[in-house]
């Protein structure tokens, strides 16, 4: 790993002193995403945690041009930017739309689906912190079963997480990948790859959120790694329909030594009210998804 580390772009695109929480998984992942995409990039984002990181007018810590827009129109605004750049004949500029899980799974889905169907040439990055963390940890359709949120305080969330990657995969995208900030080099390489591909590229980033998930700020990296070790998060990429495990998930698929999900769940405060029945259901759900991916990889 150290050799790969020196190949990373040394330039930082986010100046220190941002508004993001201590130990934020998003600032880490975003730091590497921008390092990979470099200067010639335009970012468009709705109101979300990233919008908080981007700061309040008249100053911003991010050195990449950025457009703020409304929740439901993230991908639509990206399509507009792409059309504008095409009219100006600036086709080498990368356009990246970034939204949280609420802005993607719940509100942004129609604009994203439309842009993906039209094959708009942009990268869509969904950072999935499994809830509306910016507004105070409300439930979203990305929240996993058994999690306590401020809108499911007593009974915990009863439904499973929406399999959004499958929805995006159904759009037959040229590139789709999952990344985790706990594996920054894997994340960096996938963004470098995505930059070179034309068409709609979808990247799903799982970001551990210390205040929302209820773990100590120092454990952000550990939590992200445990999610991969237990198979809750699977690192892979789908290039023109060809599925490939990457990084740690590849090793896990080869060796078959996945940890039980309890190792991941017990470390987080949000699962404190989960009962044994829900735990078994969660394990079965994760196992089912894992088997699906194994079949995809073998095909």
């Amino acid at each position: 790993m150290p050799e790969n580390l020196f190949k990373l772009n040394a330039k930082e695109y986010i100046l220190p002193g941002t508004r993001a929480c201590q130990g934020c998984g998003l600032s880490l992942g975003y730091r590497y995403a921008l390092k990979a995409l470099r200067e010639n990039t335009i970012v468009t984002l709705p109101a979300c945690c990233l919008c908080v990181l981007h700061g309040i007018y008249p100053s911003t810590p991010v050195m990449i041009p950025c457009l703020n827009n409304s929740f439901a129109s993230t991908a639509a605004s990206a399509a507009g930017i792409v059309a504008g750049l095409q009219a100006l004949n600036k086709t080498d500029t990368t356009v990246m739309a970034v939204a949280g899980d609420g802005g993607t799974f719940d509100m942004g889905i129609q604009a994203l689906s439309g842009a993906a169907e039209r094959g708009t040439d942009f990268i869509y990055l969904c950072y999935d912190n499994e809830g509306y963390m910016n507004t105070g940890t409300q439930r979203s359709s990305a929240t996993p079963m058994g999690a306590v949120t401020t809108t499911t305080p007593i009974l915990t969330k009863q439904q499973h997480k929406k399999d959004f990657i499958k929805i995006m995969d159904a759009h037959d995208l040229p590139y789709l990948a999952t990344v985790s900030p706990s594996y920054p080099i894997d994340l960096y390489e996938k963004f470098v790859k995505a930059k070179k591909i034309k068409g709609t590229r979808y990247i799903h980033m799982y970001v551990p959120c210390p205040p929302g998930w209820g773990f100590a700020t120092k454990d952000t990296i550990k939590t992200g790694k445990l999610a991969v070790e237990t198979g809750v998060v699977v690192l892979f990429e789908i290039e023109n329909g060809k599925f490939r495990f990457t990084g740690r998930s590849k090793t896990l698929a080869e060796r078959g030594n996945r940890l039980p999900v309890i190792n991941y769940l017990e470390k987080q405060g949000r699962f404190r009210k989960m009962n044994i029945e829900q735990l078994n259901q969660q394990q079965a759900w994760v196992d089912g998804k894992w088997q699906e991916y194994i079949r995809r990889a073998e095909a």
């Binding site: 220190p16 002193g17 508004r19 700061g55 100053s59 911003t60 810590p61």
Partner: peptide, 13 residues
């Protein structure tokens, strides 16, 4: 309304 790049946007964190 265009922000300018500045170090310490949220103050001395």
């Amino acid at each position: 309304a265009m922000g300018t790049v500045a170090i310490g946007e949220a103050g001395k964190t």
